[in-house]
Amino acid sequence: MAGVKEAITIAQAKVEVTGWREAIRASCQPLVGSGAIEERYAERCIEIVEEQGPYIVVAPGIALAHARPENGVKRLCLSVTTLNEPVEFGHPENDPVDLVFAFGSPDSEQHIGLLQTLAERLQEGLARRLREAQTSKELDSLMRAVANAVKKEPGCQG
């Protein structure tokens, strides 16, 4: 069992987009820029919603954009983007979305600790604090706190 590899985390506050596809692209773009994912990953994230519906909208106002490791992931990564204006994903209950996470994992295990920690923080009200952040710097420190918490917790395997 390998330890938790350091994840690339990126935060961007108050981004301007005109629709859900653009929101997904915007959430993936800095991860492409940092070399964690390939450009095609964002397009696959969009296709998954087109094929399967907007189930990635996992809570009111919150989307979790992701595809599979083989869709172009090089390193474990997680981005958070708050939107200036919320967008509709077509979800019957959780629209509109103003908080978009994107993550990529190079295999089916590396992201588990990170996502579990994110889930726990969301259960405890992290979304409210993220929405209140006015700058990318504030958002970034909130996300770093999530990523740092992973290292202290033992990886939960299967």
């Binding site: 998954i48 990635i56 996992v58 979790l64 595809a67 599979r68 992201h111 588990i112 889930a119």
Partner: peptide, 10 residues
């Protein structure tokens, strides 16, 4: 969930 990696893990 659809992909079985993110949403269902949350």
């Amino acid at each position: 969930c659809g992909v079985g990696m993110g949403s269902s893990l949350i």
